[in-house]
Design a protein around this nucleic acid. Structure first.
Lengths: 200, 200
DNA sequence: CAAAAAAACCGACCAAAAGTCGAAAAAGTA
DNA sequence: TACTTTTTCGACTTTTGGTCGGTTTTTTTG
């Protein structure tokens, strides 16, 4: 009962790498089993379908990122910093986004949108909590916090996942965030640095 | 040279119906040709691939919606009304969204996101123009109009395409829109009615 | 109008890929 | 060792997008 779990992790790891580098659609089950050196039947002993594999791979990724975000949440730093920290910990990591920008490739739409959906679900409560913390501190002032946070996240995903966003997008995003949360102008200004630097 | 074009339109129509009702992935080329009563070779005489068919189907849809939006733009009605009109004319129509909510189904992610992308490209300039009109009239006041409009559209697509949005989402959206465009509170309030009614 | 050319059409065939299944090998257990 | 369970194997099936050489129909043209 040990060996099985280990093999599964191995397969998950291989699948992860291939999905990221070539895209989900462009990776065949045959590719995976060849790389792993196993037979078809063995693969389907561990996964009931290729899509289930994708689901589990995404689960892995999300768990990692949620854990990072959780650490930021628990840290003893100013609230606005926390927010940015959580958002960035949740954005695609180096390997996930730089390898040929695989995630934004059209052939990866399925994976991409599954990731976004799951990520949203896991991060939204954390961010909501943080914003509410900020409200208590008097930095923010607004109602309907979860809905507002959701819109922030949607924008962040949708605009900044692409590679063609501009300075202006960032400015507007900052402006919007401040107004959405009822913060003073300038409160979220440092977002500028963090978003800017990953896309140079 | 006439007959060909007619057949193509016929195929496009059939493909459109099937893509909408069962989803793109769940529609095979064989399904389409069976319905049309033609042979494989004929299909590929008109389309170089299944995906090209999807592309053209989407093109058809977009053209229709863009035309509607254009009419709204040209109409002699108040600017805020125009904005709402354009946004709603661009949202999935009855048939497109009510038939089993096909567009939001997970198996239709590809089609859905292609539609969103194209729609954004065709509608953004129209909306931008309208907002700028509003600025001249003194109703709105903001810079970076295209970027702001884009964010409005992204939110509108992302939040209201799902079926699980709430009253609060609408409230926050209205609030955000007003602040994003620098409008007086209440200016965009009537969005409430229009969004609410399609999802009864 | 007849012949040639172009357009439209046919369907058998191909290759890729996901998924199945019965049986065999390996590991565990009493 | 004898058994049971877990793990592995790989040939086979099915579905599907796409190809191709040839045939029929339509259009052009001399």
């Amino acid at each position: 009962m040990k060996k099985g779990e280990k093999r599964k992790q191995e397969l998950l790891q291989i699948a992860y790498g291939m999905f990221i580098s070539r895209g989900y659609e462009n990776t065949s089950v045959d590719d995976i089993i060849e790389e792993a050196g196993i037979a078809k039947g063995t693969y389907y002993y561990y996964f009931k379908s290729k899509e289930e594999t994708l689901e589990e791979v995404i689960g892995m990724m999300i768990d990692n990122e949620t854990e990072c975000a959780g650490q930021v949440l628990a840290a003893d730093i100013p609230v606005p910093q926390k927010i940015v920290g959580i958002i960035t910990s949740v954005r695609p990591t180096q390997e996930e986004s730089t390898i040929e920008g695989a995630l934004m490739q059209p052939e990866n739409i399925l994976m991409h949108s599954k990731i976004k959906k799951k990520l949203m679900a896991s991060v939204l409560p954390l961010l909501t909590q943080t914003v509410e913390e900020g409200i208590k501190e008097g930095i923010f002032s607004c109602d309907n916090v979860p809905e507002r946070v959701r819109m922030m996240l949607v924008i962040s995903n949708e605009i900044f996942d692409e590679e063609d966003y501009t300075e202006k997008d960032i400015e507007v995003f900052i402006d919007m965030t401040e107004k959405l949360l009822g913060a003073q102008k300038g409160t979220m200004g440092f977002i500028r640095n963090l978003i800017g630097q990953r896309n140079e």
